Lab assay of single mutants.
Amino acid sequence: LQAFIKTLTGKTFTVEMEPSDTIENLKAKIQDKEGIPPDQQRLIFAGKQLEDGRTLSDYNIQKESTLHLVL
Rank of each mutant, 00 (worst) to 15 (best):
D32V: 13
N25G: 08
T9R: 11
L1F: 15
D52L: 05
M17A: 10
Q49G: 06
L26N: 00
D32M: 14
R42N: 10
L69H: 00
L67W: 04
G53N: 12
G53H: 14
P37A: 09
D52Y: 05
Q2N: 10
F13H: 02
G10R: 04
L26K: 00
D32A: 14
N60C: 05
E18N: 13
G10K: 03
I5G: 01
L8C: 15
Q41H: 03
S65V: 15
T14G: 05
S57W: 07
Y59C: 03
S65K: 08
P38R: 13
G53A: 10
Q62H: 11
T66W: 08
L26I: 08
T22R: 06
I44T: 10
F45P: 00
P19L: 12
V15Q: 01
I30S: 00
G10E: 03
L50N: 01
M17S: 04
Q40C: 09
G47T: 03
P37R: 08
I36Y: 15
G10W: 04
G10A: 03
G10H: 04
L67N: 02
P37I: 04
L69G: 00
T55N: 05
T14K: 09
D52S: 07
L26D: 00
G35K: 06
P37E: 06
M17Y: 15
D58P: 00
E51L: 10
I5Y: 02
P37Q: 05
T22W: 04
K11R: 14
K11T: 07
I30E: 00
D58Q: 06
G10M: 03
Q40H: 13
F13W: 05
E34C: 13
E24L: 15
S57Y: 09
R42P: 00
N60A: 08
K33F: 10
E34Y: 14
S65F: 14
G10V: 03
P19D: 09
S65I: 13
D39Q: 10
V70N: 05
F13K: 00
K27H: 01
F4E: 06
Q49L: 15
D58I: 02
I61H: 04
R54V: 06
Q31Y: 15
Q31K: 09
N60P: 04
A3M: 15
Q41L: 05
I30W: 01
R42A: 07
A28C: 07
Q40I: 11
T66Q: 08
T12N: 06
F45M: 08
E51G: 04
L43W: 02
L56N: 01
A28F: 12
D39E: 12
E64G: 15
T66F: 09
T12F: 09
R42C: 11
K27C: 02
D21I: 05
Q62P: 12
M17T: 07
M17W: 12
S20R: 08
Q31M: 13
G35W: 02
A46W: 09
Q49P: 11
E16L: 12
G47P: 00
D21M: 11
L43H: 00
D39T: 10
Q40N: 09
I5W: 02
L8M: 14
L43E: 00
I30R: 00
G53R: 09
T22D: 02
I44V: 09
A46S: 08
N25T: 14
L26W: 00
Q2L: 15
F13P: 00
L26F: 03
N60D: 09
S65D: 14
V15L: 12
V15M: 06
L56G: 02
T9L: 09
E24N: 08
S57E: 10
V15H: 01
D52W: 03
P37G: 04
A28H: 12
E16A: 09
K27P: 01
L71N: 07
N25K: 15
Q49V: 15
Q41Y: 13
F45I: 05
H68L: 15
Y59P: 01
A28L: 15
K48N: 10
V70Y: 13
G47F: 04
R54A: 09
Q2E: 08
I30P: 01
D58N: 04
D52P: 07
G47C: 05
L67R: 01
T55R: 12
G10T: 03
E51K: 07
L71I: 13
L67G: 02
A3K: 02
I36L: 05
H68C: 12
Q41C: 05
R54Q: 08
E64V: 07
M17V: 15
K11A: 08
G53T: 09
E24V: 07
A46N: 15
L26C: 01
Y59D: 01
L43T: 00
A46D: 14
V15P: 00
G35Y: 03
R54H: 12
Q2H: 12
E24M: 13
K48D: 06
I23G: 00
L8R: 12
A28M: 14
V70A: 07
K48L: 12
P38V: 15
M17E: 00
S65L: 09
A3C: 15
M17L: 13
F13T: 01
T66A: 06
K33R: 12
P38L: 13
E34M: 15
A3H: 05
E64A: 11
I61L: 08
K48H: 10
P38S: 14
T55E: 03
L8Q: 14
I23D: 00
Q41S: 03
K6Y: 09
H68A: 06
I61F: 09
L43I: 12
F45W: 09
K29E: 03
I61A: 04
K63N: 15
T12M: 11
G10F: 04
I61E: 04
T7Q: 05
G47E: 04
P37W: 05
R54Y: 12
F45H: 08
T7M: 15
E18A: 12
E24S: 13
E18R: 14
T12V: 13
N25P: 01
T7D: 06
Y59M: 04
E24C: 07
Q49R: 09
K6E: 07
E16T: 12
I61K: 04
H68P: 02
Q31F: 15
I36G: 02
M17Q: 02
T9E: 11
L26S: 00
L71F: 09
H68F: 14
D32W: 09
P37D: 07
Q49D: 12
T66Y: 08
A3E: 03
Q62M: 12
Q40G: 05
K11Y: 15
S20H: 13
L71V: 12
Q31P: 00
E16N: 11
T22L: 08
Q49H: 12
T55F: 08
D58A: 05
T55H: 06
K27F: 02
L71K: 05
G10D: 03
K48P: 02
P38Q: 13
D52F: 04
K33I: 15
I5S: 01
T66L: 11
S20W: 14
D21E: 09
I5F: 02
D52G: 06
F45R: 02
G35L: 03
N25I: 14
G35V: 02
E18L: 15
D52I: 05
F13E: 00
R42W: 09
E16V: 11
F13V: 04
Q2C: 10
K63H: 15
I44W: 15
T66V: 15
P37H: 11
F4V: 14
Q49M: 14
T66G: 05
I5Q: 02
R42Q: 11
R54I: 05
K29Q: 07
N60S: 07
F45K: 03
V70Q: 09
L26M: 06
F4W: 09
L56F: 08
E18S: 14
Q2D: 05
S57N: 09
L43Q: 00
N60E: 06
G53L: 08
N60T: 06
Y59I: 07
E51S: 06
K11I: 08
D52R: 03
Q41N: 02
S57D: 09
R54T: 07
D32G: 08
M17R: 00
N60R: 06
Q62V: 13
F45Y: 13
F4M: 10
K6P: 02
D32K: 13
E64S: 12
N25R: 14
S20I: 05
Y59Q: 03
L1T: 06
Q41P: 01
G35E: 03
Y59G: 01
D21F: 05
P38G: 07
R42G: 04
K48T: 12
R42Y: 11
T66H: 15
Q49C: 11
F4A: 06
T7W: 07
L26V: 06
L69A: 01
L1G: 06
E34L: 15
L26P: 00
T9G: 13
H68R: 07
L8P: 14
K63R: 12
T66I: 15
K63W: 11
I30F: 02
R42I: 15
K48E: 12
E24A: 15
E34F: 14
I36S: 04
D32T: 11
E64Q: 10
E64F: 14
A28N: 11
N25Y: 12
L1A: 05
V15F: 09
E51Q: 10
D32I: 13
K63F: 11
K6Q: 11
R42F: 12
Q2R: 14
Q41W: 05
L26Y: 00
Q31T: 09
T66K: 07
L69Q: 01
D21C: 04
A28K: 15
F13G: 01
I61W: 08
D52C: 05
Q40T: 08
I61N: 04
Q49Y: 13
E24P: 02
S20E: 11
L50K: 00
A28P: 00
L71W: 10
V70F: 14
I36M: 04
Q40W: 10
L8K: 11
A46I: 06
V70L: 14
R54F: 13
D39L: 09
L43V: 05
P19Q: 09
K11E: 08
I23N: 00
D32R: 12
K63Q: 13
L50T: 03
D39W: 14
T14M: 13
I23Q: 01
F4N: 09
K63T: 15
T14F: 10
V15D: 00
S57V: 07
V15G: 00
K33Q: 13
T55L: 11
D39N: 12
L1Y: 10
L56P: 02
Q62K: 12
L69V: 06
K6H: 14
T12D: 05
S65C: 06
L1C: 06
I44A: 04
S20K: 08
G10Q: 03
D39M: 09
